[in-house]
Design a protein around this nucleic acid. Structure first.
Length: 475
RNA sequence: GGGUCUGUGGGGUAGCUUGGUCCAUCCUUCGGGGUUCGGGACUCCGAGACGCCAGUUCAAAUCUGGCCAGACCCA
């Protein structure tokens, strides 16, 4: 079997093949952009969902689930929103043989499904803050090339929707979401930047949008999530009001927080290497794979030891798989490396006799564990692996940004760029044209590297009111 | 929206220009047998494809048209 394409030179080819080889999805389903989740891929997704659920519930959100179909009449209530999504929605126009009076859209996102009901649920200031989330599939009719996890038509989507008393409370919720995301990103060992999108690129209907982007090589970026402040943009058309202390009816201020299976794609894209996928132990379908090494005259002692150890690890809460297939050990090593398993344990006749294991993590670090206290030693090895992965990620993150001072420099960017900008939209578009990408926006919080004070606008040369913005090429 | 190109077993490909030598090549995959087993094993047997519909022709994977699916470039 050949090596994967070069990740730096041919990123997309590398990515597609890494996903393919790892067996995360089956792309042969006969609808473009709708992939089948394999058992292996589904397990990764479920682990990821678990992370999201724990994170968002810790921040005071409760689960709900709204229907998949939205009546056209509800869908069209917020003008900007409709404009933003109209070209991308799937319509259900028939029920059996009957044409529907009111066509239904397959949700591309759930604002318009939820908010008419929020209007019924929310009466009083005592109902606020109101924070709910759901993890459901959404549908967008992508016309461009689709890519597993990145650009698809049926999206496994996480969305939190909240209603707050005031503008400030809504802004505060956005900050809480940022903190929640930081925890999620840490569990995935993914560094990222949060930046406020320029107005021309915010979510349709939003007051502002904070996007979460990862550098994924060269100037390429991948948006893995968004946090939006809607102000009253939706509560007015949907009439979500509460009665305040004085008995006045007021519109709620809303926020949303959206994440998707792109996070899984980002994990693959960011950590993966020439051997394939590299999973952090938090979402690895198998955290440990045990490869018993048998030879003709050693009998079943390696396999027995492997099974016994697997039982003990399972009891200790570790996700473990014993590969006792007929393949040769080397073939198994390559297989499980391509699938991203954090830790491989080899048990041959010698280890079996000693009560030890040889442990090799996905970053290639090798050690002998045992005898005695194998569970602790293996747990520790996983912790060290995650730390090493995070350290490696931080290092490549630092190298993923550089400052540009002139528009001409942007053309052959090999990193995401940091440029000084006056805030003028025309200048913004010049930057986008120069880099053949997008202005990602103004970072929330510190920049990945410190470029000092903003200089004159890279496009028009003005000095006043400039700020640093990130520019890259979104995938 | 405008243009260019592509469609061959489960995956990846050769063949197409110049129709016949193709009941279709090679790698991989899959089922079975044997020898193996500490970094992608070898060997034997077997399975599996010309996107769809028409047309031209003695003869179509190959030429023509339509359709469907997909990719890329430009706005």
């Amino acid at each position: 079997m050949a090596e994967l394409p070069d990740k730096a030179e041919h990123f997309i080819d590398w990515y597609l093949e890494a996903v393919e080889v790892a067996g995360l999805t089956d792309k042969r389903y006969p609808v473009k952009g709708m992939n089948v989740w394999t058992p292996y891929g589904f397990q990764a997704r479920r682990q990821l969902d678990g992370l999201l659920i724990r994170g968002i519930e810790a921040s005071g959100s409760r689960p709900v689930e709204f229907p998949t179909l939205i009546p056209q009449t509800e869908f069209q209530k917020e003008k900007e929103h409709v404009k933003g999504f109209d070209a991308q929605v799937y319509w259900v126009t028939k029920g059996g043989e009957t044409d529907l009076d009111i066509p239904l859209v397959l949700r591309p996102t759930s604002e318009t499904a939820m908010y008419p009901i929020f209007a019924l649920w929310i009466r009083s200031h005592k109902d606020l803050p109101f924070n709910v989330y759901q993890i459901v599939n959404t549908f967008r009719y992508e016309t461009k090339t689709t890519r597993p996890f990145f650009r698809i038509r049926e999206i496994h989507f996480f969305e939190e929707h909240t209603c707050q008393l005031t503008d400030e409370a809504a802004a505060a919720r956005c900050q809480e979401n940022l903190a929640t995301f930081q925890g999620i990103a840490e569990a995935l060992a993914l560094p990222y930047v949060a930046s406020r999108r320029p107005d021309w690129d915010k979510f349709p209907g939003a007051y502002y949008s904070i996007a979460l982007d990862l550098p994924v090589g060269g100037a390429r970026t991948l948006q893995v999530g968004t946090i939006h402040h809607y102000r009253e943009n939706f509560s007015r058309p949907y009439e979500i009001r509460y009665e305040d202390l004085a008995g006045e009816l007021r519109y709620v201020h809303q926020t949303t927080f959206g994440l998707s299976e792109r996070l899984l794609g980002a994990t693959v894209a960011f950590h993966g290497d020439r051997k394939g996928v590299v999973f952090p132990s938090s979402i690895a379908p198998y955290q440990v794979v045990i490869v018993p090494i048998v030879s003709q005259n050693s009998g079943p002692i390696s396999t027995d030891a492997a099974r016994t150890l697997a039982d003990r690890l399972r009891a200790a809460g570790v996700r473990v798989y014993v590969d006792d297939s007929e393949e040769r050990p080397g073939a198994k090593y390559y297989l499980w490396e391509s699938r991203g398993v954090p830790l491989r344990l080899e048990i041959g006749p010698r280890e079996a006799a000693e009560g030890t294991v040889t442990a090799v993590n996905r970053l290639g670090q090798k050690q002998r564990i045992g005898p005695g206290k194998l569970e602790d030693g293996i747990r520790q090895a996983l912790v060290e692996y995650d730390q090493a992965l995070a350290a490696q990620a931080r290092e490549s993150f630092q190298k993923a940004f550089s400052v540009a001072h002139r528009l001409e420099e942007l053309q052959d960017s090999t990193t995401v760029r940091i440029v000084s900008w006056c805030g003028n939209e025309a200048c913004g578009h010049q930057i986008e044209q120069a880099i053949d990408g997008a202005v990602l926006g103004t970072p929330e919080g510190p920049l990945p590297i410190d470029p000092g004070s903003p200089a004159e606008c890279i496009a028009c040369g003005k000095r006043e009111a400039t700020r640093w913005v990130l520019a890259g090429r979104p995938l």
